[in-house]
Write a protein that binds this DNA or RNA. Structure first.
Length: 467
RNA sequence: GUCCCCAUCGUCUAGCCUGGUCCAGGACACCGGCCUUUCACGCCGGCAACAGGGGUUCAAAUCCCCUUGGGGACGCCA
């Protein structure tokens, strides 16, 4: 069997969104799992809508997700001569012809067909006029007749009528640029693409492309059409939910491996397994596991997957990613040592890096300027708890060994002596140190803060309690 | 309008191809409980689905048909 080649061909008219990223992932996985190659090709034949910025954004998105390509990124706009060559071949063999109908005329034809209860299509009026090249003239493909059949990798055997699915569509614009269906077929053939996994929205393009392969005498690759992704409202994914750039997910604090794992499971399954390492994905992915019905994007599940990866991640790596999120909260230049110490405390407590930053921000506030939640202050930092906070400060200052275990022992011993329960001091101390009623363990926090900051925050609470 | 695709818990899915082991399994979410200095984590338990109707068959979530519901495509966009 010849070498497997897959591709991802986005058009640079928008960011790399969730749907595109999933398609890219499936193709990447398919190639990687079979010792094949993966091509990145930018489909920018529509010059008016394509921008270099979007091309860059797509490249950035692919890179962030770790979907590395072996060839490309190719730009279709660089390959016009190649398309022209194929178009000339089609004209010479009678499979294509020039047409000078205006867009208005074509619109009228469509209306007529529609009014007659048919599918709107070009009526072929220039088919037999034997027009030559001329300014503004498009080239149309002569649609074939008969049955178009292929074995879809996900949907199984497919059969459609060429008459129904294919009209004499334009393959070269009046301005000389090639159109989508022509360019894809030429490129896929030229690049040796063997397997095409793409969104279901391309299903109706498939007969057109197969017709082109046939007219050109090229071998037809394998097609697989995966269902679309819906938003939570059962409608097409839009800006409000997932259609935004994958880079938005980075900004929300998701790790790329979490996004990839989530995307993999959207429309693909392997028994009961939910979590996959990169290597497992590559080894296990196959078209067999692809589903046939549309999937809804579910942020809660993405967050759950994300929580898992944050828990598993190397703390040093997270510490490296966190400053950006802390900065958004007004924490500039967090102390590296303190940050490194705080990360493990929040790995089991956060679903995203952003949550992690929000949780740990209090560690980086100046001791004298820590903001306390007013309700927490009112409830726990009171005249009644002031002596306890005072005692806690002294215990911290005088602890022979400043480590969680011994510290806790010291507190317990003192509390026993006073006939007090641990609960009596826990919340007041927590509020004093973190400003809130919820946080990691008291002594773990103390270790992160260090003896001096801990004592300082406790004394400040004492002062606030008295005030 | 025409054509095409799809249909298992709220969501992602396993099972469907090769009918019986499925009064349908896992995960997320949700609800209880345990653990516990708070919040999490973790652990235990619970709720919850084969869209409807016809067939075929000894037997259907699994095969066939229809209905309904959802989605997509019909460009000198990709």
């Amino acid at each position: 069997m010849s070498k497997v080649v897959t591709r991802f061909p986005p058009s640079p008219t928008g960011f790399l969104h969730i749907g595109g990223a999933r398609t890219a992932l499936f193709n990447w996985l398919f190639a990687r799992g079979r010792g094949g190659e993966f091509v990145l090709r930018i489909e920018d034949t529509d010059q008016a809508r394509s921008t270099p910025e979007m091309t860059q954004a797509i490249v950035d998105g692919m890179t962030w997700l770790g979907l590395h390509w072996d060839h490309g990124p190719y730009l279709q706009s660089d390959r016009t001569p190649l398309y022209d060559q194929y178009i000339e071949r089609l004209i010479a063999s009678g499979h294509a012809y020039y047409c000078d109908c205006t867009p208005e005329q074509v619109d009228a034809m469509r209306e007529t067909a529609k009014a007659a209860g048919k599918k709107p299509k070009y009526d072929g009026s220039c088919r037999h006029r034997n027009l030559g090249p001329g300014p503004g003239r498009v080239v149309r493909f002569r649609a074939p007749e008969g049955l178009c059949a292929w074995a879809d990798m996900v949907k199984g055997p497919m059969e459609m009528d060429f008459e129904e699915m294919v009209d004499d569509f334009v393959i070269r614009r009046g301005n000389g640029s090639p159109m989508y269906n022509l360019a894809v077929v030429v490129d896929d053939a030229d690049m040796g693409v063997t397997h095409i996994i793409r969104g279901e929205d391309h299903l109706s393009n498939t007969p057109k492309q197969i017709a082109l392969y046939m007219a050109l005498g090229l071998s037809v690759p394998a097609f697989g059409h995966v269902p679309m992704i819906f938003g939570p409202d059962r409608k097409k994914l839009s800006k409000r939910h997932g259609a935004m750039s994958v880079m938005e997910y980075e900004a929300m604090g998701f790790l790329p491996e979490a996004v990839v794992n989530y995307l993999l499971r959207l429309g693909w399954g392997h028994g009961d397994q939910e979590l996959f390492t990169r290597q497992e994905m590559v080894e296990l992915f196959s078209e067999k596991g692809l589903g046939t019905s549309p999937a809804m994007f579910d942020m809660a599940k993405l967050e759950a997957v994300s929580a898992h990866y944050i828990k598993e991640a190397d703390p040093a790596r997270l510490a490296g990613l966190l400053p950006r999120f802390l900065a958004e909260l007004g924490v500039a230049d967090p102390d590296p040592a303190r940050l490194a110490a705080a990360v493990p405390l929040y790995q089991p407590r956060a679903k995203t890096l952003r949550e992690m930053a929000e949780g740990m921000a209090f560690f980086f506030a100046p001791d004298q300027a820590l903001e306390h939640d007013p309700a927490a202050l009112a409830k726990f930092v009171t005249a009644e708890s002031a002596p306890l906070l005072e005692a806690a400060a002294r215990l911290v200052e005088e602890a022979p060994v400043f480590e969680p275990g011994p510290l806790e022992e010291g507190f317990k011993t003192w509390l026993d002596g006073q006939g007090l329960k641990f609960k009596a001091v826990a919340q007041p101390v927590r509020v004093a140190l973190s400003g809130r009623t919820f946080s990691p363990g008291l002594f773990e926090m103390m270790l992160v803060l260090g003896r001096e900051s801990t004592a300082c925050r406790l004394r400040r609470a004492v002062a606030l309690a008295g005030a």
